[in-house]
Amino acid sequence: MSALTPLCALAGAGFRRYTTYRAAMIGGAVTNSVFGLLRASVLVATIRSRGGPVGGYDTSSAVTYAWISQALIAVVELFSWQEIALRVRTGDIAVDLARPVDLQFAYGAADVGRGLAALLPRSLPILLVGAAATGLALPTSPWPYLLGAVAVLLATLLSFACRFVVNLAAFWIVEVRGVVGLYVMLTTLLSGLILPITWFPPWLRLLANLTPFPSMVQVPADMLLGRLWGPQALAALGVQAGWLLAVGALGRVALTAGSRRLVVQGG
């Protein structure tokens, strides 16, 4: 049995588990659709006010961007996820750490499964609503989709790596909620979810590019739109991978330190 088999099994479990939360899926799809419409309106109004493209987006690409970014929320899981933090607080984490599979990889695999499970019931309906409400300007050639798929996968893994680190803060901080809230705010703003990063004032754009967040939404969305291609696309994928390695490594350090603390303190 290779090292991948248990991870595949965990991914499958993560997939199945997500599909049981039907009400949350429907609710999530509705929320994302509502916000897709609202954000698309704001983007279009801004572009119309300018009388031309803003930050490289015209009305049709901006609208499509709004819908794609909303559709990505569920897959990339941008918002709060506190499962590990909760298990640290209750002490159940000790059970997880005693298992033969590495904690980070185990949860990571389950998260990928979850992300895949979200595609059909949440992402697809949102895109359909978008197509009906405002129309979508999706590319016709296969390359954007292939590159986009890779980017989405990297974005999901990167998002997991970041959420993993945030959750591990529970080993040291009691009120993780504050940290989580901060994380959610930063993600929302700096990932390009509210407005494309190219719209930001230079200082904010610099700030965003110093964080992994743009790689979570802006990059995969631009790739699916066909705005990133060729060497630029490869460079963006490289940036995603780089962040993934960096945050992943940070996660491993935090995990080691956290488990040591658990053993010493008794949980």
């Binding site: 109004a45 801004t46 006010s49 930050g55 703003l189 719209w199």
Partner: peptide
């Protein structure tokens, strides 16, 4: 708030 500022960084009038 940052969103509002960003929009008006790009255009003088919204709506």
């Amino acid at each position: 708030f940052a969103e509002v500022l960003t929009v008006f960084h790009n255009v003088p009038v919204l709506g």
